[in-house]
Structures are given as C-alpha cells and as structure tokens.
Amino acid sequence: MSLNDFDDIAEEASIAKKKKFNLDKFLQQWNTLDANNFGSWPLSVKVTVWIFILIGMIFLGYMLLLKPKMDEISDANAQEQNLLNEFKAKDSTLRNLQAYQRQLQEMEANFNQQLEQLPKETEIPGLVEDMNVTGVNSGLKFRNIRLEPEVQQEFFIEQPISIEAVGDYHSFGAFVSSIAALPRIVTLHDFTLTAGPNTEKRTDIPQITYTVKAKTYRYVGNATEGAQ
C-alpha cells in the first residue's frame, strides 16, 4: 500500500469523525435548549425548528383549508357530471318527443284526410248513384243494387251495399278500378262469379253474373254531427 493510500484513509476517517462530532454536538444543543430564551438557540436548531413549524403549518393549512375545498370541487365535478348526463338524457327524450309529435301530427292529418273520405249519412244515396254510373260506364248491367242494414262498429258505422250485375271480365275489371278511384272509401267483398252463355251477343265470350258486396263507412262522429 502506498503513502497516498494511507493519506486518503486518514482523511476519510477525519471527515467521519468530524461528522459524528457535529451530529453529537447538534444533539447536545437540543438537550441543552432553553425554552424561555429562543434567541440564544443555535442557528442550526432555529432553522430546524422553523422547518418543522413550516411543515406543520403547511399540513394544517392543507387539512383545514385545501382539503375541504378539494372535496367540494370533487363533489361539484361529480354533480356536474350527473347533471350533464341528466341533460343529455332529457335532450335525447326531447328530440324523440319532437319526432313523436311530428309523427302524431302527420297521423292526425292522415286520419282527418281519411275521415273526409268517409261519406256522411246524407251522401250515401249519392254514393250509390256514383257506383251505378261507374258500373254502367264500365259496361256492366245492374240487376240489383240495394242498401243493407248498417253495422255499428266502435269508431265507425259500416254500410253494406249488395250488388248484382252482368257483364264480361273486362267490364268487371274496369268497374273495380273505377270504384278504387272514387273520392270516397269503398271496399269490395264476397265476390261470386257465375259464367253462362252470352244470349245478347253472338260471341264465344261467356256472360258473367257478378254478385259482390260493397262496403262504405262513415265516422261515428258524423252521425252525431248530423243529429246536432
């Protein structure tokens, strides 16, 4: 081992001894402090006390001032999120409600339009006359067309009309198309077709006897309005 190595070891031992001495001296200073004479305390002890006091003040300030405010902010953020979610839900409901209201208005408009196509009680004879003219223009010959007793339903009154006519297939097809084009609602039910020889024309095309029941409808309110 060289001389330089001995010098380094001696220097490290001296530093360690010095540090140990300073620490012992610092502890001795704490043990000999005079609580009634703060001005006579060593500077190192004063700095240490100030550091502890500062740490204590910061801790108390955090616990008494900052932490409650931070808790309030956290609660406010949670409440804000809840209110935001509630707003989104209500906004979605409102948008759907507006769409439902538009659909309801469209349905009401369509319903009123359909009601306008239902004949009033005073219009039934005129409707029968229109059906008669439509059949004649289509090439049919009516043997019988009569009103049957009304059938009361929950929201409307059903008026059956019994029809018996003679003609060929084309005439009957034209008659059905013309009935569908009437401004009033008329439906056809219970078709009965009977083919027979054509005695009026010399042709192989058979003559068809048609028995069909037409039905038209009128709104129950129309009957009340007519009575009033």
Rank of each mutant, 00 (worst) to 15 (best):
A10H: 05
E11D: 13
E12L: 14
E12N: 15
A13I: 06
S14Y: 10
S14T: 12
S14K: 12
K18P: 00
K19Q: 01
F21G: 03
N22P: 03
F26N: 01
Q29P: 01
W30N: 06
W30T: 05
W30K: 07
T32R: 06
T32E: 10
F38T: 06
F38G: 05
F38V: 06
S40P: 03
S40F: 11
S40I: 09
V45P: 00
T48G: 03
T48P: 03
W50C: 09
W50P: 02
I53L: 11
L54C: 15
G56Q: 12
M57T: 15
F59N: 15
L60W: 14
G61N: 09
Y62M: 07
L66E: 12
D71N: 08
A76I: 08
A78L: 11
Q79A: 11
E80R: 14
E80W: 13
K90R: 12
L94I: 09
L94C: 07
L97S: 09
Q98W: 08
A99K: 09
L104F: 14
Q105W: 08
E108C: 10
A109Y: 07
A109Q: 11
F111L: 11
N112I: 12
N112G: 12
N112T: 13
Q114H: 14
Q114Y: 15
L115Q: 05
L115I: 10
E116D: 15
E116P: 06
Q117G: 09
L118C: 12
P119D: 04
E123W: 02
D130R: 02
D130A: 08
D130C: 07
M131R: 00
M131T: 00
N132Y: 08
N137F: 13
S138Q: 03
G139M: 04
K141C: 08
F142C: 03
F142K: 00
N144G: 07
N144H: 08
R146I: 02
R146A: 04
L147I: 07
E148S: 11
E148A: 10
P149I: 04
V151W: 04
E154S: 15
F155D: 13
E158N: 09
Q159F: 04
Q159W: 02
A165H: 01
D168K: 03
Y169C: 02
H170T: 13
G173W: 05
G173L: 09
A174G: 07
F175T: 00
S177Q: 13
A181Y: 05
L182D: 00
L182V: 04
L182F: 05
T187F: 05
T194S: 02
T194A: 01
P197W: 05
T199Y: 10
T199E: 12
T203D: 06
T203P: 02
I205S: 07
Q207L: 08
I208K: 01
T211S: 03
K213S: 04
K213Y: 02
Y217A: 02
V220W: 03
N222G: 08
A223N: 07
T224P: 01
E225L: 11
E225I: 13
G226N: 14
A227C: 13
